[in-house]
Structures are given as C-alpha cells and as structure tokens.
Design a protein around this nucleic acid. Structure first.
Length: 127
RNA sequence: CAGGCUGGUCGGGCAGUCGCGGUCCUGCGUUGACGGGAUCGAGGAAAGUCCGCACUCCUAUAGAGCACGGCGUCGGAUAGCACCCGGGGCGGGGAAAUCCCAUCCCUCGCGGAUGGGAAAACCGCCGAUGAGGCGUGAACCUGCCGGAUAAGGGCCACAGAAACAGGUCGCUCCCUCCCCCCAUCCCCUCUCCCACCGGGAAAGGGGUGUAGGGGUGAGGGUAGUCAGAGUGAAAAGGUGGUGUAAGAGACCACCGGCGCGCGCAGUAAUGCGUGUGGCCAGGUAACCCCCGCCGGGAGCAAGGCCAAGCAGGAGCGAAUUCGUCUGUGGACGAUGGGAGGCUGCUCGUCUCCAUACGUACCGUUCCCAACCGUGGGAAUGGUCAGCUCCGGGUAGGCUGCAUCGAGCGGCGCGGCGACGCGCCGCCCAGAGAGAUGACUGCCCAGUGGCGCCUCGGCGCCAUGGACAGAAUGCGGCUUAUAGACCAGCCUGGGGU
RNA sequence: AGGCCAGUGGCUCAAUUGGCAGAGCACUCGUCUCCAAAACGAGCGGUUGUGGGUUCAAGUCCUACCUGGCCUG
C-alpha cells in the first residue's frame, strides 16, 4: 500500500475516531467514515501499547497492511458502483494479532469490510 | 575423551513471485493520485538512558566567586569519559571428573543416587631457613580503593562496670574500730626426771594484752593500679617470663601491627630486606565534614527559514450642502468630499464613513436601594470609518538530516593491552501514523522417530532458528539473547 | 526527549538519627443469639519489588535492574 493512500494526519485520525463507525473483531477493529473532500480510500493502521513491544507493534501493522492490500481494488469497484465519495478507514490491532497468520488476518478483514458494506457482497473470492 | 574458564567471530543461506521506502536515470498521441529501469535499505545490542562528547540555543571565544552535584590506588590510552587498558593492596568465589567409605534403589553390574573423606610426591599458605601444621590448594573470575594519629562534630541499639574515658566492682597500700590466733609474761591442773628447800621438761586450761607478728570483717582516703569482671560485632597488642605491696610493655625473649630512616627492584602505587621508636592511637566518611580535581544551564520536541491567519503592540487618520418624510430622536435620496480595494499610474468602478459625540457602548472606584439577579446616582478612563507597520506560541511545509565523519574495510608496523601510525580501497539506511514484509521451494546447523550395519556413521520422515526494530550522530557501560564456529589456558582419565 | 515519585500481610497505609516490621479493614476460631449481623476476645497472615554491596546490624544508605504512576512542551 503506497503512502499516498494512507491516513497520516493527526486531525484525520481524530475525526474518524470521533465520528466514524466502528466494527470489532477479536483480531482487529475497523473504524470507517465517509469523506466528501476526496474521492479515494485512505487507510490508517494503528497498534497501541497493549499490542506489546515495538517489534510486535510493527509486525501487527505490517500484517494489516499486507492483508488489506489485495482488497483495495474490490473496494474501489464497490465505490464506483455506488458512485459515493471517498472513505477513511482505520485498522486498530488487538493483542491477539501478534500470534495470527496472514490468512487469519485477511479473513478477519474480509468479514469486517462486508459488515461495513464496503465490499461487494456478491463477490465471494476477494483478491 | 570428559569438563571448566577466558577472549574473539557469526547471529541462518540461496532462488523465485508479490509488496514498501530513499536516491538516480528515463518514457509519453494520454503530464497523470501514470509507467519503466538501476541501486541501496536495521543491530550486537538499534533497548535501558547510567556516564562522556560533538552540535544548537540561552548568550557572549562561560572568565571569577559562592552554593550544589560528581569523582578520588598508581601508570597509561583517548577528542573526552566514573565504568576502557595494564599494574598494586585488601577481601570473596573457584564445578565436575578420579579414588575410598557408608546408606538407599534396581534391570545385580567395573550400575545409579545421596552424604562423608582423601595418602605420598609436588605446589600454596602459616610458621625464625627447619621441624611441624593447614589446604582434594589450579587455570581463572570478581567486589572495593584519599583522610578516622596529626582538623572538628555526630552515632555505636540490646547486653555490659565501661563503647573510648574519667570513673564502678575488684586487687594492693595506709589510717581507725571490732574480733580471732600465735609468741612473750603470769596463774592453775596432770605426767615424767633430777631430787626432796626446790628446780627442769612436756601437755591441757585460764588471764593480761603495753609494745610485736599474722588473719578476718566494717568504715574512710586528693593513694597506687587496669592483671581480672559472665556481656558484646567490637573492651586499648599475643604467648611465656622477670618484677612488684598489688600490678601494668614497667622490663626481657619471640611474634604481629603502625610510623620514620636507609638499601634494593619498580616511572609510580607498592614489594622485599634492614635499623629505630613508642605502644598514645576501636569502628563508621556508600553520616556530616576536611583535602584535591571536575562541572554555567537546557536540549534535535535544540535551533533556523517560509506562507496564511489570530491574540497583541505602535502609528497615521477625512470632515459639505440641498431636498423629501417625520413621532424632531432620526431615516432616505442627490451633490461634492475622505479612506481603502481592483491597477505600475490615471480614468472608471466597488465598499465604508460623515457634525457623526450620544438618553451610545465597555471598564474601574465610591454612595444608595435590594434576598439574589440587578437597578439608580456621582467621579474617572477607554472605544466608536478605515489603513499602514511590527508581530507571536502551537498546528502545517522546508531544513537541521543522511557522502566526508573522533567514518568503514584490508594489509603492514609499534605496544602485554586499551590504542596509535602508514599505505590502499570504499561511500554504506534514512522515515515522519513512522519503510526492510509476506508466500513458496531447496539447502545448512539443531531436535525427535524409524531402518541398516563395521557401533558411530549412513539413509528416510517430521519438526525447526533466540533477544529484539534505527529516528541528530558518536565513544563507553548495563541489561536481554536459541545456538554455531575458532583460538588460548587449566583439571582429571585413557592410549602411545 | 527530559524530569519526578512510588513499590511493605489479601486491601489501604505507618515505621523518627540505620537498632525487635506495626495499625485498620478482610479471613479463621470463640463469647453472645433460636440463627445471623453488630459488638467483644483471641489467632492466622511478611524473602519489605529483585540482585549485589557498605555496616556489628539495612524497610531505611549506595548501586544495577523490574513494575506502575505523574509532570513539562
């Protein structure tokens, strides 16, 4: 995931965390909010101190980025279908993510994105 | 072969696919939220932040004093360092294996577990060289380091007479008093001898007590003394003797410690030897303190630059008439005027202002009323178009900041070493919600299982790689770390 | 990045100049009660966060580490 698709501003994080809608999973938490200022998907990744030391925090964030990377084209397709505006997403790692594999994380993310109505429900093979 | 210690190196490798960040180059009928290529991309600790620096600001080549803090054996190394290197002193640790014995267990053997012990030689230490004693004695590792004579203060619980110094108990000496014993003297009784006036000897009892000797007890002393006094972590050198009224380093022999002098070794700390002196010299300075040395403070979220905006500050700053309506407070319109925007300037156009300053608004102080909110009065200060200049802090962008450095690698030389010098070669991560990841295959250590035999090797299968992620940089230290390899040293056993 | 503080029984806290680790609540047992509660009495419960050091002696002093919390911009 290239850097320009990432959420990086501190005020953006605050706004999404305050007004966005959240979806929880034992491995990860998704917070999503529609945005009118741009027409794309921006994704921020966070791992708190409860995730462990710096090694574990970095590993959790890499895992989340690698897991959501193949799901971005489906989401853009879905947004093109709805002709809606852009979306800001935040993925927050939970402590159990340290022992998870890539496939576990990817299925968890697919589940969350379908619940958030950000993936085409008909498409059963993402990526 | 088994085990130990120390030092050093590495910290999985190769290939493929997808993905991320930096730099450079590059493509275009589409200059894009576009594509392509090359190259580079975590560590020995990046960590903790315990020290020392570079660099930046305060703020100026941080210079002096005080306070405060840190450090403190000697020499060296270094830009610097308290922790680096090499010495010195004092202290602590130092497995197992081998042999023997005891007990227990079992698959009964040259078995295992636990506990205890270990000769000679050699070595180390104590002991004047010795005799003797102690030690299964190693390699090696590790903690600490100014001053408590001869600046001063504090503290040393409990116990103990006493915690550092005079005194207490005690031991002596002297004086006084009481008592006892002995000797002298006197008297009485009995026995024996000479012998018959009597004398002598011995035993027992009593009395006297002046002078004499000894002992016990009590009281007292400007007396001597610290040998002894159960305690305690610690009690003023140790052992033996001389000596004395009693004692004591008071004196003597040997030894221990400290100070001073000399000689030798060493740059020095210090060590060894020797002479001498007096034993007055308890511990604690990781208690205050004294001596010597060092330190200005803050930190890359330091600091610099940029655009916009805001708080705030300073300054400039114009003043006409006419008409209509009216509740006479004002409102509207016109004319010209003022300030500014658009522009390089003029014209033009647009916005705002205007006798507006008052029965306005905002504060402060005082008085009155009121339960409060508040209201009334007085005094006093400020504001009332707009523009110009200065101008923050935070957030944002650029920078500091990623190639020139206390830099890295190799070789050689010097040094025990930390390290230094010379030559050659190289440029080596740089983000900013924070890049180095994921998957697959093979190999390499390691572990487990199975099979084969020459009994420690081979083959197959499965499993499988720790601690940990740069954020201004660097040098030490500390802490975490699966394992692998190399070198040196030491102990024990076996073979030759 | 820098600075500061704390860690003591299950919980909340004391411990003066280094000198026998304590209090309240909780728990257990007993008295009281028909039974509880309350009250009263007794008891249990500690490697003072961990390691090393100084000292005769460490909760206290020094040092290294671990955990938790707070402050500044």
């Amino acid at each position: 995931m290239q850097r320009r698709f990432r959420l990086s501003r501190s005020e953006d994080f605050k706004r999404v965390r305050r007004t966005g809608k959240s979806y929880a999973h034992p491995l990860v938490v998704l917070v999503a909010q529609a945005s009118e200022s741009h027409k794309q998907i921006r994704i921020g990744v966070a791992a708190g101190k409860t995730s462990g030391t710096a090694v574990h925090r970095n590993r959790a964030k890499r895992l989340l980025r690698e897991a959501i990377r193949p799901l971005i084209p489906s989401m853009t397709l879905r947004l093109a279908q709805d002709n809606t505006s852009g979306w800001d997403l935040i993925l927050i790692a939970r402590p159990a993510l340290a022992g998870a594999t890539l496939t576990d994380t990817r299925s968890a993310l697919t589940n969350l994105l379908k619940r958030a109505n950000l993936l085409p429900a008909v498409d059963e093979s993402p990526g």
